[in-house]
Design a protein around this nucleic acid. Structure first.
Lengths: 316, 316
DNA sequence: TTTGCGTACGATCATTTGATCGATCAATGA
DNA sequence: TCATTGATCGATCAAATGATCGTACGCAAA
């Protein structure tokens, strides 16, 4: 038995006494016949050699492991993963909304004036609906996506009105459909003073909370008739797997150039490179779209659920 | 989801960040949006609720678990369990000797005068042979068992001479066989001034390190002809499972009263109730004998191996 | 035997964690 | 509505742990 093994043996003893036996380094020192700093060194060696395995016996632990892996893999500021187990009675969408609301609340609840952008989508809407009321008339909230449906009605997933109502803050809404009916219509809309003023506010935002959309027959863009079936096929033919703010992208996160994207009225994603964009999206079906956004480097934060997170890590 | 589950959720998060993520309570506090003492409370809750499972990934850990269980079950001052795996090239007896020597060294290496008693046996002998030399002429070492074999030769397992040679300390040997050939011979031996003087020294010992003997055909008492085959059968008939210092005992640790024990020349075990007796013994075959000694409350310490320790815990 | 280098170790200081105390808040009962 | 009780929480202090520095020791080479 060589010297290193003897030392490792002793380190394992000390580690057992400390972590399993729960005694102080002083007591371990007197029991092993070494000094207290000597014990601390043994414990450091045990940690360094990976002798100490810790397991948190709670569903959350698996989520946090995934979250940590995603955060590190894609260089995010943060990643929150919520449980998606059958034991969760209200469903993952509820937890996603609560977790998203927590993140939004951290910004909204402060007193300094804040400018915050929102995308649209079920998750974004659920998030702001989960938020508690707080009086913050000094804040400004701006929508990054047009809030008009193709038939002229308001966007059913808009969150800016809800958020502004809950806080008393100012609201800025893009009065346009997310995809114009023609390139000319888009050009006309983007020259209106209101559009330019809202663009300016959006550029001043401290953060943006957005949804992630799929490109398939269940896509909001398709379901809400912003794009036709032919256009859907076209996007699929160009390997589109998801969209952010109406901008379709490939699995690598590259925005697709085509006739459809030339008609998207949302502010170009490139304008927000310097802003933290946080995606709120979950479900295994959203996995490919979220992964695309991550690969493209568009996101600084992610709030998702375990199912999507697993997909992301398995395919990263 | 009730308040306790929310709290437990948060505790699990904090625990993950601390124990798996390895970050400080301050950092966790800022990430969870609570105060540092709040984090400390969450971690305490996680510990209290048993969410944190620690495993030491080293063979020693299993030994320490057994040792801790034996120590608590029998109220020992200490219990050292050494590995008994096939991966240990030198065998468990070597580790047992090294561990025993460590315990003896703690006493022997100090400068204050020490009086120490020794029993006999392979383990005791191996232990003192594992001990490093140290100059301690002020110490006294006394044998608790006669060091004469039935044929008049010295006891091959005596440790007092070895120990005294290694330290330069004084040696006190009982010049008698462990079992006299008659009650009269025992009486005669015990009245000799030398015997009385050695008894007095033994009573002043701070601790005693002894072996544990079996009562079967491999028993030292039988192999070395201290007892005959009939006497072995008699002891087995009286449910003897082991012996300490030649005193045979039942599985409950009660010293057996019979013609054989009336001839044992060792000092009566009852004389050492106030002294810490440490047993040095290992191997699965020694399990029952060690367990008997523990049940009888004769031991204050134990140095053993994993095989014996398992037996003890499984049958305790 | 001496010298030089690397490692181990205790003293000491800095940082982190654990625990207590008092104030505040929320819930309950009169 | 008010008073009481229990729980929560931050401020603060005590205890424990982590890390640095200087010294001593062990080992190898000259």
């Amino acid at each position: 038995m060589d010297k290193f093994e003897v030392k490792l043996d002793q380190a394992a003893r000390a580690a057992w006494m400390s972590y399993v036996g729960g005694i102080t380094q002083d007591e371990i020192a007197s029991q092993l016949g070494v000094s207290r700093p000597g014990v601390q060194r043994l414990l450091a060696l045990a940690r360094q050699e990976g002798l100490i395995k810790v397991h948190i016996d709670h569903p959350i632990a698996a989520c946090m492991t995934l979250a940590s892996a995603i955060r590190e893999r894609f260089g995010l500021d943060y990643c929150d993963v919520v449980p998606a187990e059958a034991s969760a009675p209200e469903g993952a969408a509820y937890y996603l909304a609560v977790a998203g609301a927590e993140r939004v609340a951290r910004l909204v609840e402060r007193s300094d004036p804040l400018t915050l952008s929102l995308g649209t989508g079920r998750s974004v809407r659920a998030t702001v609906e989960s938020l508690s009321r707080v009086e913050r008339p000094q804040h400004r909230f701006v929508s990054l996506v047009g809030n008009v449906a193709r038939d002229g009605s308001s966007n059913r997933y808009d969150g800016v009105m809800v958020l502004a109502d809950k806080t008393g803050g100012q609201r800025f809404l893009l009065p346009s459909p997310v995809v114009a009916s023609s390139v000319e219509e888009k050009a006309s809309l983007q020259q209106q003073p209101l559009f330019l003023a809202i663009t300016q506010v959006a550029l001043e935002a401290e953060a943006a909370f957005i949804g992630v959309g799929r490109i398939d027959r269940q896509a909001t863009l398709f379901q809400d008739h912003f794009i036709s079936e032919d256009e859907l096929d076209e996007l699929l033919g160009r390997h589109a797997v998801g969209e952010l703010l109406g901008w379709p992208m490939t699995a690598d996160g590259e925005v697709i150039e085509c006739s459809i994207t030339r008609r998207v009225t949302s502010l170009p994603l490139e304008m927000f490179r310097a802003q933290p964009i946080v995606a709120l999206a979950g479900g295994v079906a959203k996995g490919p779209a979220i992964l695309a956004a991550l690969r493209g480097g568009w996101l600084k934060g992610l709030v998702t659920d375990q199912l999507a997170a697993r997909h992301i890590i398995e395919h990263a």
